[in-house]
């Protein structure tokens, strides 16, 4: 099981082109959909915490998901699995293939992969949205977040914290007041 977790994250690490977010659709497929190790909601919680903490989102998500599945050992093997492919590939490139990025085929392959990453990340968001209890309020918050990040440029950390604080105030005072 431990080795299985390591292998799964190794696979995830090896196919994450274009930064940490590209890892999310693959984690979703392997850990949530195929193996059912965590639920879609727990996956979202993990991403939220990973976003709001320092460090690469991909590493943070691996640590949290690993913990959730198998405790400390799980976190260790998931993180190692996620990081090792990068480490090995970069070492090989740094040592032997400095010309790698000038290769024409590599250039073409990446022209194809770059738009694909955007599509995969959006597909992951779509799948998460489909599986939540959908309300207009949630849709409003999600779209609002997009606007805040893209047009105002506030750090995601603050938006996550604001979401948490507003939700606590809403549930603690406003809903309570309605019942009372």
């Amino acid at each position: 099981m431990l080795f299985d977790l390591f292998l799964t994250f190794f696979k995830i690490g090896a196919f994450t082109f274009g930064g940490g977010y590209a890892m999310l659709p693959i984690i979703q497929k392997e850990i949530v959909e195929k193996k059912g190790l965590i639920s879609e909601e727990e996956f979202m919680d993990a991403i939220a915490l990973a976003q709001a903490s320092p460090g690469p989102v991909a590493v943070n998500t691996s640590v949290y998901v690993g913990y959730r599945i198998l405790g400390f050992k799980g976190a260790l093997s998931a993180t190692l699995g996620a990081v090792l492919p990068s480490f090995i590939i970069i070492l090989l490139i740094a040592a032997y293939f400095i010309q790698f990025r000038d290769n024409l085929i590599v250039e073409k392959v990446f022209s194809g992969i770059r738009p694909a990453i955007v599509a995969l990340i959006l597909a992951a968001v779509y799948k998460m949205w489909i599986k939540t209890k959908r309300t207009y309020l949630k849709l409003f918050v999600a779209i609002g977040t997009i606007f805040i990040i893209i047009f105002i440029g506030i750090s995601p950390v603050w938006v996550v914290i604001a979401g948490a604080v507003i939700s606590v105030i809403y549930h603690r005072f406003i809903i309570k007041a309605d019942e009372g």
């Binding site: 909601e41 979202m44 919680d45 991403i47 939220a48 976003q51 709001a52 968001v125 998460m128 949205w129 939540t132 309020l137 949630k138 849709l139 918050v141 999600a142 779209i143 609002g144 977040t145 997009i146 805040i148 990040i149 938006v159 996550v160 604001a162 979401g163 948490a164 604080v165 507003i166 939700s167 606590v168 809403y170």
Partner: peptide
């Protein structure tokens, strides 16, 4: 509170 924010 943070789940919909994460989607965004």
């Amino acid at each position: 509170g943070i789940r919909p924010v994460v989607l965004g």
